[in-house]
Design a protein around this nucleic acid. Structure first.
Lengths: 124, 124
DNA sequence: CGGAATCCACAACGATACTG
DNA sequence: CAGTATCGTTGTGGATTCCG
């Protein structure tokens, strides 16, 4: 069972597994999409409205990347009008746990965050 | 105790706490620096050699951002030659736990990751 | 409805040179 | 030693338009 030290040591430092996962889900929307899919399958349009501010393009490419890495599944129903559902794969569902840990840390410490920043900026 | 649903709902979706923390430590080097500082204070030059591939500039700006957000403390000793030590603050140390969770997830599932990607790319 | 294609702006990043 | 300054490159994300 590896710890951070093991992960960030030797010839795998820069290309460590931490880097890998951040490169995949560290972008602007991936974790948000995963969080929303946690509650069950969603259609493309649903996600578009549930994530204010996201563009069609970014929703599309984000979903494609997540599907490519096996985190979400895409199911297309050949109807008219077309219907496409996205859902978390087991792999994606397992990722939701560490993501939740990160989100809860952010929620718990948001005040310290802002306070420190204000102090820093006040001196500059 | 908030869960993901609470965090990603309503008018705080795009500016959710998850977004906040990702904006700070989701960049290329921050989590790596935090991981290294976990073992104790490190000097600037030590970090530079312990993180192969990082440029002086990126190490500097990464450390400044981490200090600004209160995750890292900077201690300068007025000697010749100058000596500067960076260490995790209590806040930064508390962040190491969710980061570790993410890293361990990455380590545990790296094979599924790559396999899914290969399958996807083979069809394209 | 669920995209794909194109173009563009900006910020992140890297390399290099210089400094107290 | 521990940075700062400047420049060039790259990648990410947004706006718009078009298609099955």
């Amino acid at each position: 069972m590896p710890d951070i030290e093991q992960i960030c040591r030797g010839d795998v430092v820069t290309a460590g597994h931490l880097r890998d996962v951040l490169d995949r889900v560290g972008d602007k929307w991936s974790m948000l999409v995963i969080s929303l899919l946690e509650h069950g399958p969603r259609r493309y349009g649903q996600l578009a409205t549930d994530i204010p501010g996201i563009s069609q393009r970014m929703l599309t490419v984000t979903l494609q990347r997540l599907e490519r890495d096996g985190l979400v599944t895409r199911t297309s129903y050949p109807e008219i009008p077309p219907r496409v559902e996205y859902a978390l794969s087991p792999l994606g569902a397992s990722l939701q746990e560490p993501i939740s840990a990160l989100a809860q840390w952010a929620y718990a410490h948001k005040d310290e965050f802002l306070a420190s920043r204000d102090r820093y900026d006040a001196k500059a």
